[in-house]
Design a binder for these strands. Sequence first.
DNA 1: ATGAAAGCGCTAACAT
DNA 2: ATGTTAGCGCTTTCAT
Lengths: 352, 352
Amino acid sequence: MNLKELSQILGLSQTTVSRALNGYPEVGEATRRRVQEAAAAHHYRPSTRAKGLATGRAMAIGHVIPVSTRHEIVNPVFADFIAGAGETYAAKGYDMILSVVDDDREARTYRDIAAKRNVDGILVHGPELNDPRIALLTELGLPFVVHGRASGVALPYSWLDVNNTRAFRRATDFLLDLGHRRIALVNGLEEMDFAARRRRGYEAALLARGVAPDPALMRSSEMTENYGHEAAAEMLRLPDPPTAFLTASMISALGVRRAIEDAGLKMGRDVSIVTHDDDLGYLRNGDGADPIFTATRSSVREAGRLAAAMLLELVADPDRTPRSRLMEATLVVGQSTGPAPQQAQAALSQRR
Amino acid sequence: MNLKELSQILGLSQTTVSRALNGYPEVGEATRRRVQEAAAAHHYRPSTRAKGLATGRAMAIGHVIPVSTRHEIVNPVFADFIAGAGETYAAKGYDMILSVVDDDREARTYRDIAAKRNVDGILVHGPELNDPRIALLTELGLPFVVHGRASGVALPYSWLDVNNTRAFRRATDFLLDLGHRRIALVNGLEEMDFAARRRRGYEAALLARGVAPDPALMRSSEMTENYGHEAAAEMLRLPDPPTAFLTASMISALGVRRAIEDAGLKMGRDVSIVTHDDDLGYLRNGDGADPIFTATRSSVREAGRLAAAMLLELVADPDRTPRSRLMEATLVVGQSTGPAPQQAQAALSQRR
DNA sequence: ATGAAAGCGCTAACAT
DNA sequence: ATGTTAGCGCTTTCAT
């Protein structure tokens, strides 16, 4: 069923039918109702391509997900972010187009997307410190919003980020309040902007208390359980081992926990863990925190919703000045928090 | 840069330029080269929508990902599957359109997708035992491939699945070979076809050895760490507790492990775990198995690649008879396999 | 081997 | 309040 057929059935012109369906005011109320009913009855839906061609708008947003051929893993937080963004798009009648791309050839992909004109805007994932995509997309004139930020880029652009610096500063403070002084950081890859920010928050908290950051207690790699396990195991073998671990994800935290257990230590008595939970609900305990962890938590799904909404506004008015939004993570205190749990709770309620 | 502009620059008609670029034989070799060079120089890419409108093909495949508003979680295996499918699409010049949809309103979504005509085919995720989508899509005449199967559906359709029955039968056999008789099954939601198959494999193995499946040792729920923990904890409190656990995912396996440790038992000495790893590489130990687990493993990314390829063939020839493909999972033996590891290794090498 | 023209399904000026 | 007409950027007959 297309517009032509529908208008013939109704004995109206395509124009009138189109106007009735798109809410133009000059159409009579009776006519509009009649048209709407017929459209519903015949399951009429306008062809996206034809509409796009006529309006010049694609009614679609592109997400480029970088994938490396080396490890067959896709960052699982993408899934939640995309689910959130998808909700927004669905509500506004937009499609979401995913391009899976080898992380090396990304530039070409963005050029192609711009030239093919099948999206009205792009959501940029996983920015690095000096991410070249921001300059590229600016040059191409394609509206975009970055999930995260690129600290090294001077251009103005729109972004939405979690306040990673603050989250990790707060988590470190929490451990310091408990009396910990040897706090290890099991961080993500530091080419990633978010990881660099996390480290800055961690270091700032230490320095503010006069504790010198110890390179032997800082690791950076891709977040796997195994990485968490190895990193923690090695650090626990140091002459002056850490009494607490700050990890950048629940997954690595699980590895850290395993290392602690392997070493014959007791979680929460001998050693503490604070982790950052990017909404990996599978690892959460219902609505509360996992009882064995204390975690800073941000809602990736909500971030997806909001970032998509920002992008749609930008698409509607491409000349608007770039906007940004910083989401705060919450600190959720679990059961076994280390030397002095009571003290921890007090410190926490203060900080809220 | 569009076709009109490009053809004016070249002093040729749009027709000739189009033919040159699309490999039609009647174009002179010299002309073709000249056109191709100009196209490359000006970064010309045909507009997807215009091309689609003219050819009647969308050059896009739809994936509908069901999301519940209750739990803010997206099944993480989707990400890997989609990454695999995306590779295939990119290689063949197809776009991938993702629709995120509340799991209740799915039928309407498929109707809309068909009516909007912006995809040439659909990949169906997470089939239930009697999945209504198969009949719906057949009726709509939209080519589709199912990732998984719907055992209750009689219609012929194309699918790609992992041999879950065999994987779980083999895993159960493995535990039986080790001497276990009280084997618990911590399964996924049994409305899901794959979970039902897994249970069948488990039961078949038990029955073949004359061990009666005990309902007290069988659980079914959504795969979270917490679920694994609770299920295992309760079972371990039984008067006749299990000596081995068979779990349907690495995530729930982590919960099971925690319950085992909570109970003061030693993994691999007192109790064993065999899990099914759907490629959640974050939880894997490099290329080998996690040393504490024994797992059946399937490559979700590869499944995505293959399913997408099957769908593209179907799109090219919608009248071809449905085809199916069954992927085998491998059994990977970890370190601590229970009462008699040596025996396990022997049993395994036999079974390969 | 190349071009002119029609048409894919829709929207948006421009009538009336 | 409704209709006529001209595109949007491409492919595809049909001529030449």
